[in-house]
Write a protein that binds this DNA or RNA. Structure first.
Lengths: 126, 126, 126, 126
DNA sequence: GTGGTCTAGACCACA
DNA sequence: GTGGTCTAGACCACC
């Protein structure tokens, strides 16, 4: 398990972590019982403050997605959702709406926008 | 000319305005000499603080995209860019990359993601 | 509006704030639209770090009880619950259960425990 | 002798054990010479780490409430207190004060709060 | 080893 | 003026 953190974009780091865990749990990339990397590990790997990671984990615990195992770290909660295909598509929609709005304002044709999106989907770094 | 403003998302309102004007100018939806709606109009229509609109216009003026015509409001600057197709695609790319990353984490297949994007491109409110 | 914060007990300060707001909203002491004291005010009054107060407010915003009015502070959310009598009693029950368990273990008779509780209810500092 | 342990609440498990023994000794439920369940028994029964139980017992031994009898486990110390009625009420008071404060914030009348407390005192699991 | 809490102080963003 | 984010570093609690 590895997070993709980009400190240069405006989305707060803790939000990037929260969002990724939410999507990974919804998509099945993280399943109930799976352990998450420790706060200190993530902090060291990405050179961020442990508190920033801790804040993300606490928020996810508050949402019921993660559980704290006293003294041994965080795991994906047993009763964690794991969403249906339509629910997952609903989670993706806001991003697609924003991109579509931008394409229209930029006067980029649907065909060109779709072609560019296909490239990102196929060529993207996993 | 009408802005699409959504006060509930986290993107600051002034930024939503700035981004839209930039894209409309790049795409040709706004051409040199075109007038922009007055600060008061925008503020009243979207129930936002006039200072917020004014700040957005000032930023765009600072970038050289808008010009303040005394007593007449803001117009698109004469020397305003208007970008090539590849430049416009480059402006769209970050959004597509983000959406593609999210689709992968949600375990949504490229085909499904593309279909959903096509719907947004076609059905979206102009 | 004034919080009761006791830094000497083990309940974290931010939790004390969260709990109080939850109860005040449920009980009607805080109604939709009411403004909360600013982070800095609370921090100064109780000599705690602003971040501690901010953390509490953020959690409450995440729960939907508070709303952030950009640039002007936090208010009780319009769609905030405001609970029925039985819901409020349900919120009180855990404390009563804990107290009852302790009374039994201390071999304090129900009559004595009730008398002591009555004193606290009547004489308590508002 | 049986402990009531609730791993889901925030009170640390070892503290739940320590508190209960203290109250049982104060109340007379545990008398000098009484044996306590073995670390293994408690750990197995409540699915907690034996080290956690052991830590609680060690703390109580340090307080002089328990004594380690070689090969026989822990027993209540001979010189163990056993408190007067007013002392026991004093031990209960903090819980009652907290409950009373919560009732006020929840706008629950003293009569309703007392009635709910009476139910807990009578109906509670011994 | 794990996470939790708090501080002091800096800097940003918004109105 | 408002809240948000992050850091560095300390100390605690649990296993």
């Amino acid at each position: 398990m590895q997070f993709e953190i980009n400190p240069s974009i405006s989305v707060p780091i803790y939000r990037q972590i929260v969002d990724q865990v939410q999507r990974l749990v919804a998509g099945g990339g993280l399943r109930p019982g799976d352990e998450l990397p420790s706060v200190r590990t993530v902090a060291a790997l990405h050179a961020v403050n442990p508190m920033t990671v801790s804040k993300a984990y606490s928020l996810l615990e508050g949402q019921g997605l993660l559980q704290r195992l006293r003294g041994q770290g965080m795991v994906v909660a047993e009763r964690a959702p794991g969403s249906s295909k339509s629910e997952r598509l609903a989670l993706l929609r806001p991003s697609l709406q924003a991109a579509a709005q931008q394409a229209r304002q930029l006067e980029i044709s649907p065909a060109d926008a779709l072609a560019a999106f296909r490239m990102e989907l196929e060529g993207g770094n996993q």
